[in-house]
Each structure stands twice: as C-alpha cells, then as structure tokens.
Simulated scan of single mutants.
Amino acid sequence: MIRPLPAAPSYGATDLAGVLPSAAASLGVKGFRGALPQARGAVVVLVDGLGAELLRARSGHAPFMRTLMIDAASATAGFPSTTATSMGTFGTGLPPGSHGLLGYQVVDPATDLLFNELSWENGPDPRRWQREPTVFERVAPAGIETTMVANDYFNGSGLTTAALRGAGFATAATLAQRVDIVLARVARQPRSLTYLYWGNLDRTGHEFGCGSWEWVDELEAVDAELQRLSARLPRGVSLTITADHGMIDIPESNKTDIAFDPELAAGVRHTGGEMRSLQLYCEPGATDDVLAAWTARLGEQGWVLPMADAVSKGLFGPVQPHIAPRLGDVLVAMDGPYGYWDSRVMTITVGELIGQHGSLTSAEMAVPVLHRPAD
C-alpha cells in the first residue's frame, strides 16, 4: 500500500516563504512580520540544492553551517520542490497558488503550449504571469538598498523578473568573488537587504549525484566561503542561509521515458512538471483513464491523484482563480528513488541527470533556514 500523502506545506513565517519577509521585518520595514532580531542590514544567501537532510547527513563537512543548525527549526520549501517554484515563493513570500510559478514546465492556458519556467524560453510576459509584488519591490519605498548577486544570465531573465524584480543586480563568476561583492556593498551601505545566489551545489548534485564526493567537495567550499562572509560582515548586519529544495539520486534503471510507453502516454495531451513531479494535462474525457493507468503502474513508487484533490489538500497553498487553469489534470509525485519523464518535451540531458527533485519527500522538501544575528 502507498504511504499516505505527506502533510501539505504550511508556507509559514519559518519556512522558505518567510525568509525574505522576516529579513525585511528585522530592518523595520512596515508591512512585514518576522521573529528575527532587529538589524541595520541583512544578507540572505540561497544555496541551490542544499536540502536540510543532505546538510544534516554531511554536516561534518560543513562546520560553519553546523554551528547554526543547533538553533534552527525545521523548514520546508513548498511544492513542487523545484527551483522555479521555490524562487517564486522566496521572492514574493507567497505560496505557489498565489504567485503562480507552478513547476519546471507548465502550460500557458492562453496558448495551450508548454513552457519552461526556469529558462523562460518562449514564455509569457513575466510581469503578467506573476503579478504579485515581490519583497524587493515592497522594501524599496522604505529607502533600503537592495541587491541581488547571482549569475550574469539571471539579470533581466524571465524568472528573475517574475520572482525577484525590484533589486539591483551584480554578478561574478566564483562564490568568493560574489562574497567580496556582498562585503563591499554592505560596507558602503549597512542599511540594506542583499541576496546572494549560488547554484553550483545543485549543478554538482544533478551531474554526479548528491551522494558523490564531488558534491561533498562543493559543500566544503561553500561552507568555507559562508564562514568568511559571516566573519567579515559589518556590525549590525545579519546573515541568513537557506535553499530552494533538496535532492535525491535516481538510478538510471529506475527512470521511465513515457514517450516509449504507450500505456502511460495514452490520453496525455501535455507532460508538465519534471521527472519527480509530473503534471499531466489530459485529453478531453481521458482524465479517469489516465488516473487508472498511472495508479496501476506506479503502485508504491509514488502518489497519483486528481489535481483537484492536490489543490483541496493545500499542496500549493490557496490557489487563486487566475492561477488554477495553469495546473494539469493529474498529479504524479514520486516517493521512492524513481523518475518518469517524457523525452518528447524534456531534453535527454535532463533525463540523464542523477540528482533529481520536485516531489513531496522530506529529502526534497525540507530546507535549512540558518540565521546568524547581527552583532
């Protein structure tokens, strides 16, 4: 028998949704609430792919972050546990059902075409797609300088515009260089909100697996730079470290390409989502048959349910009326180390990745929220 569906995320103040709002509240910005101590400035670091369970298991390789874990509460990124959705939650402080970034690949109801919310290639106007104000936009009237330090191709991208618009932008290739940028910015203007993104840990996990020595090496390098950042921050500036999702390794033998599986492909008009969390957009009248076929095939490998049930159970938080048409008809979420993908709409490179995420397991959903108060 399949395990009961995990509890829905709370999208509360202590979760990923509360990280930027809590930092803004600590700076005294009206309209935000949080439990963080008061600070003159705040630096928030998001390490892509740094799941809480992975960090806990490898904490011996992250001595600095381990010291911060002692007082850290459990936190969740939200669902689906994927970067595009989590960036929406992180940037707006809202659940996916409100900001509308619902997965790796989703259907635009205006065109009935899939687009990738990470690359945003051929996607809709990001300001129309995600119409809610971001935390950075809400902080600006308070006169607090905001900066995002990330990869150069993020500047003005569809996802950045949708989820993180409103902040100034700076870029550098290495994590050490990005830390130097942050230190220079906060030294010049301590009363500021600065966001640093680092994606190499996620990339390493995808390519080599999150159980690999390469992943551990990258974790050690990240921890060392974050310790340097913490040690050199000016007095009065706090540091918060979080992540957008965790990760799980999937053996090649446990991956199924539904493009070559007529039984699973039958009745499916579009395959949205990703390998660990699929949203199936069904042909008219085919939803029940699709549900039956996928339920019979997956067995104990995961959860299969009508999207209406997923919404009623609160997996996406409250779903706004203009967001609901973006969701598929059937949700498929993996439990064990399995993955299903569709090479007709997903690249071979994505299908070959070892580390995967997106589903409801705690290995993918749980993220650290580590805080070092201002001195």
Rank of each mutant, 00 (worst) to 15 (best):
A7C: 06
P9C: 10
A13E: 09
A17P: 12
L20W: 07
A25P: 03
K30Q: 14
P37T: 03
Q38N: 02
G41N: 00
D48Q: 11
L54M: 14
A62S: 11
F64G: 04
R66Y: 02
S81Y: 01
S81Q: 00
T83N: 00
A84C: 06
M87N: 04
P95V: 08
S98R: 13
Y104Q: 04
Q105N: 05
T111I: 14
E117I: 05
W120D: 05
N122V: 06
P124W: 02
E137M: 05
V139Y: 01
A142W: 10
G143T: 10
M148K: 01
S157Q: 13
T160G: 01
A162Y: 09
A167D: 07
A167H: 10
A172Q: 13
L175S: 05
R178S: 08
P190T: 00
L193W: 01
T194Y: 12
L196I: 02
W198D: 01
N200L: 12
G205L: 13
E207D: 14
C210A: 06
G211H: 11
D217V: 09
E218V: 02
L219D: 02
D223W: 01
A224D: 14
Q227W: 11
R232W: 08
P234S: 10
S238K: 01
L239E: 09
A243C: 09
G246C: 09
G246W: 10
P251H: 11
E252W: 11
E252G: 10
A259S: 14
D261H: 15
P262N: 07
A265V: 14
G273D: 12
G273H: 08
Y281P: 12
C282S: 15
E283T: 13
A286S: 15
A292E: 13
T295W: 08
T295E: 15
L298Y: 14
W303G: 05
V304R: 10
A310E: 03
V311K: 06
G317S: 10
I323R: 04
R326S: 11
W341A: 03
R344N: 12
V345Q: 00
L353G: 00
H357Y: 06
A363I: 03
D375L: 08
